[in-house]
Simulated assay, not measured.
Amino acid sequence: MNKLIQPLPLSAEQLKDMLNKVIFSDESSPNNRKIAEYILVHYRSIAFMTASEIADKAGVSQPSVTRFVTNSLGFKGFSQFLKTVQDIIRNEVTGVERYHISGKTKSNLEILIGQEIENLNNLVEYTSEEKLLQIAARIANMKTVFIIGFRTGAPLANYFYFFLRKIHPDVRVCTSGGSDVYDMLHHMDRESTLILPFIFPRYPREMIDVIQYLKQEKFNFVTITDSYTLQAEGICECDIVTPIIITTFTTLFDSYTSSYCILNILLDMIGRTDLDRTKDMLSSVEEMYQRNRVFFRR
């Protein structure tokens, strides 16, 4: 298995600042200025280009581009630079733009499934088992867990809520947005409640406002997201990162397979934190299902 090259946690503004420093530095070579100027103007399109293609567009050699991203920008290599740019633009690309990009690539079953398998294999490089266990213990030991997710975060939040309530005595969820979430938070005890905000591209402004409110009101919360973008922007710590890893935008919409995988692992860890409680709660749920004939049986 190839080792995953992780993107650096940079925002678009931070990348632009780095490029501008190169452009206006007296110590920069003419070639470096050309490359920096081209990337600054075309950073959204270079996410899908090779080093040779960027070199051709900027009017320099391919080795010049490779040296530029390592020596001038501080990346470990061109691959890390490319993944960082892809990470930055994922939440900026609109559905229409994505349609045009995906139309340029061959999208078939074998390619897409192969990409999903690679993404799942690479999760090992992204995920700290020790950190997941610590978060699982926090969730298991809190009296109340409140899950929040809007837009793309909503189905993930609902999935986690659906299963967590089977093994935790007090789980609540809000996926509707609006003022309801603030009404629900207002009555929650800060000491005994853990908030789980789910925020995924294109990062709804409404969800960022909720996170700012959680910080202001000193709630305990664990953020679940897809990258370190929010951390780079100074919005919040990114506690659980379930990356949507891409090489090109081969489909119209992102796949959240890796996110569901990590959530399932986290649920298992929570359940194993207190096996007696988990066993009792699952047994009680199954008895209720049978009494009410919830499922079809032959």
Results as ranks from 00 to 15, higher is better:
Ile244Gln: 12
Met142Asn: 14
Val69Pro: 00
Ser179Arg: 11
Ala58Gly: 07
Gly149His: 02
Ile265Val: 15
Asp170Lys: 14
Ser29Phe: 07
Met288Leu: 06
Arg293Ile: 09
Asn141Ala: 06
His187Gly: 05
Ile167Lys: 00
Met18Ser: 12
Leu266Ile: 02
Asp87Lys: 10
Met184Ile: 08
Pro243Cys: 00
Asn264Ser: 15
Ile54Met: 03
Glu191Leu: 11
Asp183Leu: 10
Ile244Gly: 04
Glu129Ser: 13
Ile235His: 02
Glu217Gln: 11
Ile35Val: 13
Lys166Thr: 10
Ser25Ile: 03
Pro197Arg: 01
Ser176Leu: 10
Phe253Tyr: 13
Arg205Val: 15
His42Asp: 08
Ile135Val: 14
Glu217Lys: 12
Tyr289Gln: 09
Pro30Gly: 06
Ala232Asn: 02
Thr175Ile: 07
Tyr161Asp: 04
Ile208Gly: 07
Pro169Ser: 09
Asp209Thr: 13
Cys261Thr: 06
Asn108Leu: 05
Pro7Glu: 07
Gly153Trp: 00
Arg277Leu: 13
Asn292His: 10
Glu116His: 07
Thr248Pro: 03
His168Glu: 03
Ser283Pro: 01
Phe81Pro: 00
Gln115Glu: 14
Ile148Tyr: 14
Gly271Asp: 03
Glu118Trp: 14
Gln115Ser: 12
Met288His: 08
Leu123Ile: 09
Phe295Ile: 08
Ala12Glu: 05
Gln62Cys: 04
Ser29Gln: 10
Val145Met: 10
Glu118Lys: 15
Asp209Leu: 12
Leu185His: 04
Val96Ala: 14
Arg165His: 15
Lys3Phe: 03
Arg90Asn: 13
Met184Lys: 07
